[in-house]
Structure formats: structure tokens, C-alpha cells
């Protein structure tokens, strides 16, 4: 049921209206964080570039949530897509998908999650958050739930995600990074557990009122994932075409690709830590 819904959503945002894609077209799903229509326009030069490099037609689709990307790879309505590490682990487990490239931001292919509180809260350590309220982003987020919760596990404050309810006074899922960090800034909650970059969503003078009291283990960055059974030649082509953006003449296209600094090659082992953690939390089967 959900599968069908998502594929409809995909079709809705197909770049080119017109005949169904030819069998040999390469189909790429982008995830739109905000404005799907805008993204469709933005990725057009990327599509043209990839067509020239791969020598086949490239069709771009835009999905509005990760589940749709994963489902498109499993349903073979797309050959490759962009997703977060936890979604990848699920896509691998459920559909045999595999990663080819990781994104690089600010010179790094990993990032961390942090536990933020207001400076004037008097809270200085994560232990002190016992019985306090915390906002995460959503229950299936690596940087906005799994890794920040792991900070508490590493400190021996909780054992399993089911203990979190007992440790915290109240857990909220704010639905977005900005909502989560603003919830702390505005005093709706005592803390937020989110990816490090969320902090910059605050205005400079607002950032000064916040402080991080905990930091997670490194999280591998978002990745480009390919479906099981995709044409290996095209997969190699895609990998090389995207890697060539790192310091090639088409570097400006990276701006349309979520403004990454570039790509690095990855394989399943890059995400072993994520898979391990996902297992501990019961997100993936033993």
C-alpha cells in the first residue's frame, strides 16, 4: 500500500513529462528537502552532464521523503538515489542495495550529532538531563535520533532505545532540524539531540545562547546508493562522473547536488558502525 503511494509521488515529480523512460535509461532519485519543483529545475544541468558522461538517457525523479527513495530502489523504479546512512542500512537489508559514494561537507565525510542546551539552563552534562525534556528530529533519523541517543548509551545512562522514555521526562520528535534546535532556543524543551550543522540554522546572535554538552561518535555522511542488479557499467559510469566533479571543470554542479564539497568512494563497510547501532536499537534484524 505504502509502496504504491510513494511511487505515485515519484511519478508526479518526474522531470520530463512525455513517453515512459526507455528501458536503457538510467533513473536517479533525488530527495527534496523543501521545494520539489525547484529541485527539478536545479538538477537539470546535472542530468545533462550525466547523460553526456554515461552515454544513455538519464531520468531524474524527485521524492519528498527517504522512504520513497528506498522503496523506489527496491521496486526497481529507480537505479540510484541519495539517502542518509540509516536509510541505506535499511535499503541494504531489505533490498540488497549498496552504496558507491559518500558526500563530503566542510572537508569531511563524517559528521557528529550534538546535545544542545541553553547556556542559561545551568545544565552542564548529559546526566543532568535525567527527567528533563528533549527534542529529536524523527524516530528514523541517524543524526537526529539514533546517534544523539547513543551519546546517552555511551555514558551508561540508558541501555536500549526503550529505556529512553524512562530516562527523559519527555521525548519529542520535532519533525525537522530547525524545529528541534529552535525548541531548545525558545525554551519549549531542555535539550535537543541533532546533527552538528543544525546549529547554524540559528541566527548568529541566537547561537550565542546555546551550548553543546555532548557529542556523538562520527556518523558517515549521506550517500549515493545503487539498487541491486543495476547495470554495473552504468554504476561505474555514475561513480566516475560524480567523482570527476571533485576537482573537474564541472565542479559548479556540486551546488545543485546539495552543495556538497565533493564525493569519496565508500562501500558497505563504511556503514558497518551504523548497521551495528541500528541493530542495537532494534531497527534492523539480527
Amino acid at each position: 500500500m505504502r509502496l504504491r503511494n510513494s511511487v505515485c509521488a515519484l511519478a508526479l515529480f518526474a522531470l520530463a513529462a512525455g513517453p515512459a523512460p526507455a528501458a536503457e535509461d538510467f533513473r536517479l532519485v533525488f530527495i527534496a528537502y523543501q521545494n520539489p519543483d525547484q529541485l527539478v529545475d536545479n538538477v537539470e544541468p546535472v542530468v545533462e552532464y550525466l547523460e553526456a558522461r554515461l552515454g544513455v538517457g538519464v531520468k531524474a525523479y524527485v521524492a519528498t521523503d527517504y522512504a520513497a527513495v528506498v522503496e523506489a530502489l527496491r521496486g526497481e523504479t529507480a537505479d540510484a538515489g541519495f539517502m542518509g546512512p540509516l536509510q541505506y542500512v535499511l535499503a541494504h537489508q531489505e533490498a540488497g542495495a549498496y552504496p558507491i559514494l559518500g558526500e563530503v561537507y566542510s572537508g569531511s565525510s563524517t559528521y557528529v550529532s550534538r546535545i544542545f542546551v541553553r547556556k542559561d539552563s545551568g545544565i552542564e552534562s548529559v546526566e543532568q538531563l535525567k527527567d528533563h525534556s528533549i527534542a529529536f528530529v524523527d524516530p528514523l533519523s541517524s543524526s537526529g535520533y539514533m546517534y544523539p541517543l547513543d551519546v546517552f548509551r555511551q555514558q551508561g545512562l540508558i541501555d536500549h532505545r526503550d529505556d529512553a522514555d524512562a530516562f527523559f521526562g519527555r521525548i519529542y520528535f520535532a519533525g525537522g532540524d530547525e524545529q528541534a534546535i529552535r525548541a531548545v532556543y525558545n525554551g519549549f524543551v531542555d535539550a535537543a539531540g541533532i546533527g552538528q550543522y543544525s546549529f547554524t540554522l540559528l541566527r548568529p546572535e541566537e547561537r550565542d545562547q546555546m551550548v553543546a554538552i555532548g557529542e556523538s561518535r562520527p556518523i558517515p555522511s549521506h550517500c549515493v546508493v545503487v539498487r541491486k542488479g543495476a547495470d554495473p557499467e552504468l554504476v561505474d559510469g555514475l561513480r566516475e562522473a560524480l567523482l570527476a566533479l571533485n576537482d573537474g571543470p564541472n565542479r559548479n554542479l556540486l551546488e545543485q547536488l546539495y552543495n556538497v564539497d565533493g564525493y569519496v568512494e565508500v562501500d558497505h563497510s563504511t556503514y558497518a558502525g551504523v548497521a551495528e547501532l541500528a541493530k542495537e536499537y532494534g531497527f534492523v534484524r539480527e
Partner: peptide, 13 residues
Amino acid sequence: MALCLAIFCDHPA
């Protein structure tokens, strides 16, 4: 979720 958007604002320059 908005990781990439967050990074738009984090461009050091």
C-alpha cells in the same frame, strides 16, 4: 532531515 540545507548556511566564506 534538513542536513543539506543546514550546510548551505555553514559555508565558511
